[in-house]
Simulated scan of single mutants.
Amino acid sequence: MKHSKTKTSFYRRLYIAYLIDRGINTVPAITAATGMPRRTAQDTLSALHELGIECEFVGANKDGHYRIRQWGPINQQWLIDNLRLIQHTLEYPAL
């Protein structure tokens, strides 16, 4: 089934925030977990604020990581409950 770009973009952002919250919080770790290109991961991280998710980079450039400071309007329980659907829609492997 073909999903809209709006839906996949929204799910991708949610999934990246979920991964960061679970400790998969560097660009190399995100690309390894999802298989997405590095640039896509970076663009998605930059766009989290558009959903009201506050994400910050902590530490030095080489040794730092991302952290979710605030989920904003996103219901984390909905995300957890629908994780398999999101992974399936994005064609990402289950963790």
Rank of each mutant, 00 (worst) to 15 (best):
P73I: 10
T44P: 02
M1V: 14
I16K: 01
F57T: 07
C55Q: 02
A47D: 14
I30D: 05
I74W: 00
H3V: 14
A41K: 03
D81H: 00
T89R: 04
K5P: 04
A17E: 05
I68M: 09
A60I: 13
M36G: 01
T8E: 09
D81Y: 00
Q87R: 10
P93V: 15
H49S: 14
D43W: 10
G52P: 05
W78P: 00
H65S: 11
P28V: 08
I74S: 01
P93M: 09
I80Y: 01
M1A: 13
C55N: 11
L95V: 07
T8P: 04
T44A: 15
E50S: 15
P28A: 07
T8C: 02
C55E: 09
I80W: 00
G59H: 10
S9Y: 05
A94W: 02
L85F: 09
Y11W: 14
F57A: 04
I20T: 05
D81E: 13
I20G: 04
L79V: 14
E56W: 03
A29S: 12
T8Q: 08
L90G: 07
W71Q: 01
G72T: 06
L79P: 01
A94N: 07
R22N: 15
F57V: 10
N61C: 12
L48M: 08
R69E: 14
Y92F: 15
W78H: 02
A94T: 10
S4P: 09
I68G: 06
A32P: 04
T8L: 14
A17M: 04
I74V: 15
P28Q: 08
I16Q: 01
E54W: 01
E56N: 12
V27R: 02
T31N: 03
G35L: 08
H88P: 01
G64I: 15
Y92G: 01
N25H: 10
L51T: 07
F57G: 08
R12K: 06
H65Q: 13
T26K: 06
P37K: 12
M1E: 05
A41S: 10
K5N: 14
E91I: 06
A33Q: 13
T6I: 15
A17D: 09
R22C: 07
T89F: 03
H65E: 14
I20S: 03
T6M: 08
S9N: 12
P93F: 07
Q77R: 03
Y18D: 13
N75V: 08
K5G: 13
G23S: 10
